[in-house]
Amino acid sequence: MPYISYHDKVIAFKIVYYGPGLSGKTTNLTYIFNHLPEELRGDMLTLNTSDERTLFFDFFPLDIGRIEGYAVRFNMYTVPGQVYYEASRRLILDGADGVAFVADSQPFRLEENIDSFQSMQKNLGHYGVDWKGLPIVLQYNKRDCPNPIRIGTLEQRLDLDGIPVTDAVAIQGLGVMETIHTLTRDVIVRFKL
C-alpha cells in the first residue's frame, strides 16, 4: 500500500532494489539518479561500509509530477546484499510497493541469487505480503560477464512463471531504465485505493 495523504495531496510508492551482494543494486539506483532531470529528484543518500558496500540502504525520492492534484512520488531504495545484513534487508522491505530483483548473471553466483530471492519471499511473508501479489521485475544484471547464466534459469529454479524479466549491464546503463520503467508501470497498473 502506498502512502497517501489526502490532506497534503501526496501519493508515495516505495520501490526496493533487492538481490544478492554485489549484484549491482546501487549501480542501478545511481544510474537512474544521474539520468533523471534534476527537478524530479531529491538528494541521494548512501549508507555505506568503508569499502563502498551498502550498509543499510541507498535512497532518493523521485517526483514524477502532479496528477489530479496529487503529487506522485516514488521513494527509491536499495537493500544491503551481504548475507550478514538480513535484518536490515527485512526492515527496508517493509511497505514495498514494488521490487526490482537484481540478479548477478555470473555462473558462480547462481545459488546466491536463489538464496536471495527466497529470503525476499520469506521477508515479505514476515509482513504478511504474498510476493505473488506484488509487482516484481527480475533483472539479470552483468550480462557482460563470461558465460552468463541463461535467462530463464532463475524462473525455472524458483518457479516464477510469468514474472517480467529484463537483462542489463548496469555499469553501462543498459537495461536499467527498462527495468524501472517496467516496474513502475506495473505498480501503477495494480494500484488500488
Binding site: 524530479l40 496528477i67 489530479e68 520503467h181 501503477i188 494500484f191
Partner: peptide, 18 residues
C-alpha cells in the same frame, strides 16, 4: 480522485520519464 484517469496520467508520465 478518479482511478482510471489517475492511472492514465501516471503511466503517461512514467513513459516520458523512463
Amino acid at each position: 480522485l478518479s482511478m482510471p484517469a489517475f492511472k492514465e496520467y501516471a503511466l503517461d508520465l512514467i513513459d516520458r520519464i523512463f
